[in-house]
Design a protein around this nucleic acid. Structure first.
Length: 613
DNA sequence: GTTGGCGCGTTTTTT
DNA sequence: ACGCGCCAAC
């Protein structure tokens, strides 16, 4: 037995050294799941230097962090022994390698969610007349999200549609998805779901697993296609070890299926190890967390027990304030006090707009803070504009990108762009189609120059210079900041060997927007705070209609809200403060009376209540 | 018939 | 910060 980490407790050691072919590590919040997974990977590599391992995560950041930790443990490079990456990037890789076997070419372009939506809107306008479009009860976004859910979970799309919309024309809806599929195929696009589906197909085409073991992080967030990939690897000879916490499953609205944790045990007769020794929070914080998740109707039973012993072992506080502005003032003041003591303090909330009052309060007090979550830099309008030029260079028939470019020019709107695009797609060439438009002469000349250029770094340079002037016209208020972003993108190009890899990275490894002004005062949605921890946590607006959110209606949806509430609570290490504003200001200027979140009802014994203002 | 300006609302969003 | 709907202007 290699002593890679002598500080592991008994349950963690069992998880690190188990040799089961299928292993499920149920890791409650703060129980050291990353440590267990990385130590396990390190131990495997050490014991069998010739073996190869695959570590799958949901974010690039997690993959990189774990690789670093494994490398630090074994004090060697992990190259050729541990492949770690996101499900999507792993899929993209295996598809490019096996593309011809599954009927694809390896030069596909990965489109993100907003591209998918653009494409779906095009499909809608091709199928319905303008009047019909306005009267539809389902929107492109609705169809796309249901379709995506169905594909990711092996369910019949039409059946779900029928359940949700009783009186719609199902033939039309079949036509919509068929045309959506066809459009992708014709333009050589793969959307995020295609990556997973074709990834699974590629795995199915293997005769033997290239990996001795597949390790999986955040297993509760996998969908059924991702789980199927793991089962395939198992049947091809891999061991599988998965870490997850069903109580922290908060992404089912995007297709995550936490019941994979139960299925995994049943299907593979997996060994189950529960980690419940918590190294993050004080017992009073865990007590309320346990009591809230206990009422959950189906979860793997585990009671978190604190290992943290502080002299200052205070109960969570429920602070009652008069309204949401008072909430912002109170929290800003208190955050400042804790921050001055050197503590890391966060305000968490259900939806971005709830943090807005606090943000302006902190600004007016001159307190620096960092903002987690929100839109990625690579998803911003100017980033997508920039990328569109590259995409048209790679594939002149890339219609989403082409239309985006055309619409940057005055006098070119939806219809005209569509017309020009059709001329290009239907056999005609780009140059001829563009030469018919007076406002596009400049663009035509630019493309001519672009297509004569071979070095892709020169191409980036050309695009940058051409788009700069357009940007000044499109975004006169803040084009300087946007230009700085583009320079950042240009600099990133040195990390990639070719244009296709560079383009893929834009979609699969989006760049965060945030600059960290102060790592000790943090504003974040609960979703974006998952996996993080803070000395002090303020949970804003613990009112009914937010916890659970009023749009969550079914039992399953409300259970997910409960888990979200649980995730928020278990971020706190020392202090936890729930803020309840008795009134909230509504848009039209009146104050609405609030009731406290049902999740906090009858929890008085766990709380200290105080009234401020 | 189209384009483009303006005001409004906003659940969360790993890829 | 952005998409959407509405409406005036071309």
């Amino acid at each position: 037995m290699y002593i890679l980490d002598s500080n592991l407790n008994e349950e963690q050691k069992r998880a690190v050294y188990s040799d089961s072919r299928a292993l499920l590590i149920v890791a409650g919040a703060g129980t050291g799941k990353t440590r267990v997974l990385t130590t396990r990977a390190a131990r495997l590599i050490k014991e069998n230097p010739d073996a190869r391992y695959l570590l799958l995560t949901f974010t690039k950041k997690a993959a990189m962090e774990m690789t670093t930790r494994v490398r630090d443990l074994i004090r060697e490079d992990t190259k050729n022994r541990l492949y770690s990456g996101t499900f999507h990037s792993f899929c993209s890789n295996i598809i490019r390698r096996h593309s011809e076997r599954i009927g694809l070419t390896n030069d596909f372009v990965i489109i993100d969610e907003s591209d998918s939506l653009d494409l779906m809107k095009k499909v809608f306008s091709r199928i319905y007349s303008k009047e019909k479009l306005d009267s539809l009860i389902f929107k492109p976004k609705d169809i796309l999200s249901i379709y995506s859910y169905a594909r990711n979970n092996n369910q019949d799309f039409i059946e779900i549609i029928q359940r949700k919309y009783k009186y719609v024309n199902f033939e039309d809806i079949k036509k919509i998805v068929n045309l959506y599929e066809l459009s992708k195929r014709e333009r050589n696009y793969l959307d995020f779901d295609d990556l997973l589906m074709y990834g699974l197909l590629s795995i199915k085409a293997l005769e033997k697993s290239p990996f001795d073991e597949v390790l999986v992080d955040e297993f509760q967030d996998t969908n059924q296609i991702q789980a199927e990939m793991l089962y395939r690897f198992y049947y091809l000879g891999s061991r599988i070890s998965a870490v997850g916490d069903d109580a922290q499953s908060i992404y089912s609205f995007r297709g995550a299926y936490y019941k994979n944790m139960f299925d995994f045990i049943k299907r593979l007769d997996a060994e189950k190890i529960i980690l419940s020794s918590n190294y993050r929070s004080t017992q009073p914080i865990l007590d309320i967390a346990n009591s809230i998740i206990q009422s959950s109707y189906n979860s793997i039973k585990k009671e978190l027990i604190a290992n943290v012993k502080l002299k200052d072992n205070v109960k969570p506080k429920l602070v009652i304030v008069s309204d949401d502005w008072e909430e912002a003032r109170y929290v800003a003041r208190e955050m400042q006090k804790f921050n001055e003591k050197g503590l890391k303090v966060a305000a968490l909330y259900r939806a971005a707009y709830i943090g807005r009052n606090l943000e302006s309060q902190l600004n007016s007090m001159g307190i620096k803070y960092s903002f987690y979550g929100g839109q990625k830099l690579t998803e911003s309008a100017h980033a997508k504009d920039f990328m569109s030029f590259l995409r048209v260079f790679v594939n002149p028939k890339d219609e989403i990108a082409l239309i985006r470019i055309l619409r940057m020019f005055p006098g070119i709107g939806e219809k005209k762009a569509e017309k020009i695009k059709n001329a290009v797609i239907n056999g005609g060439n780009l140059k001829i189609a563009l030469s018919k438009e007076k406002n596009l002469e400049e663009l035509n000349l630019f493309f001519e120059k672009l297509f004569e250029t071979t070095d892709w770094h020169d191409i980036l340079e050309l695009i940058f210079n051409f788009y700069k002037d357009i940007m000044i016209r499109l975004y006169p208020e803040n084009y300087e900041e946007r230009e700085a972003d583009l320079i950042k993108f240009m600099d990133m190009s040195s990390n990639y060997d070719n244009l296709v890899d560079y383009l893929e990275a834009f979609t699969l490894n989006p760049v965060e927007r945030v600059e960290f002004d102060n790592n000790n005062v943090i504003l974040s949605t609960i979703h974006s705070a998952k996996g993080l921890e803070f000395d002090v946590v303020f949970l804003l607006s613990v009112i009914e209609s937010v916890y659970p959110h009023f749009k969550a209606q079914s039992t399953d949806e409300i259970e997910e809200e409960r888990r979200l509430f649980y995730v928020a609570i278990t971020r706190a290490k020392q202090r936890l403060l729930f803020i309840f504003p008795r009134h909230s200001k509504k848009n039209r200027g009146y104050f609405a009376k609030n009731t406290i979140s049902p999740f906090l009802r009858e929890k008085d014994s766990y709380l200290d209540v105080s009234i401020v203002g």
